[in-house]
């Protein structure tokens, strides 16, 4: 596959493999890369694109899946893990979270959307392609579409409150940080924790219990219909 890319893109590339995923560093325009994939490897499932974000997802016991990809050996500024209980679409790697929908953009979702078919139709009419019939992919494509129209992350998430119907706690990852949004009923759980050194979000506290300094962290539940955002740039400015 790497040889194919080098030949089609006429450049040297780098790559590394983790289980059945590979990360390719392809110094070429995105449309050329997509053409190359469509021509030679149409069955390839792209989990993410960008210069910061990498998404690994698979089916199995969470501990087994984590062992396959070895997140302990990864270095980064922010990360999220997600285990899915399938409700709106089948159990597959493709339907697993996080969903990417733009460069360095990812979404995980706890909940289910009730109007995803209608929103998907509208986005398709706007020229957006989908990889799955999953409701969360609709939310990811929707938010990415709003961003592509020039909306800020905060505004795009405010738009989601109006256009996405159903239950959700969203965690959106970007190159520089992450945002959290709950629907206006906020029945799907979420907890935020913050210290001088880190900020963390989880569905429940158990996932945060092992973090250093958690005993004295500020812990609270995000309010409904309210966007919470953190970025490294902002934190650096504050410091």
């Amino acid at each position: 596959m790497a040889a194919d890319f080098e030949q089609l893109l006429e450049t040297e590339i780098e790559y590394f493999v983790r289980a059945d995923h590979a990360v390719f560093v392809l110094p070429a325009a995105e449309d050329r890369i997509r053409e190359a994939i469509a021509a030679r490897h149409p069955a390839l499932n792209i989990t993410s694109i960008g210069s910061h974000l990498k998404i690994f997802k698979d089916i199995g016991l969470p501990a087994d899946v984590a062992a396959r990809f070895g997140p302990n050996e990864m270095i980064g500024s922010h990360a999220i893990g997600h285990t899915r209980m399938a409700t709106e679409s089948g159990i597959s790697s493709k339907n697993s979270h996080p969903f990417y929908a733009a460069r360095d953009f990812s979404l995980v979702h706890n909940g289910s959307l009730s109007n995803h078919n209608g929103v998907r139709d509208k986005l398709r009419h706007a020229g957006i392609d989908f990889d799955s019939d999953n409701d969360t992919e609709v939310a990811a494509r929707y938010i990415a579409h709003r961003l592509s129209l020039g909306r800020s992350m905060n505004d795009a998430l405010q738009d989601a409150l109006k256009d996405l119907d159903g239950f959700y706690t969203f965690a959106v990852g970007s190159a520089d940080g992450f945002s959290v949004l709950r629907d206006s009923i906020a029945a799907k759980p979420a907890v935020l924790g913050e210290t001088a050194d880190w900020v963390a979000m989880a569905s429940e506290y158990r996932a945060l219990a092992a973090l250093p300094g958690i005993e004295s962290a500020r812990l609270w539940e995000p309010k409904p219909a309210t966007v919470y955002s953190w970025s490294h740039e902002r934190l650096a400015r504050a410091a």
Partner: peptide, 11 residues
């Protein structure tokens, strides 16, 4: 009187 140590957010 009972003291429960290291609850770690258990349910």
């Amino acid at each position: 009187e009972w003291q429960v140590l290291h609850p770690h957010g258990k349910h």
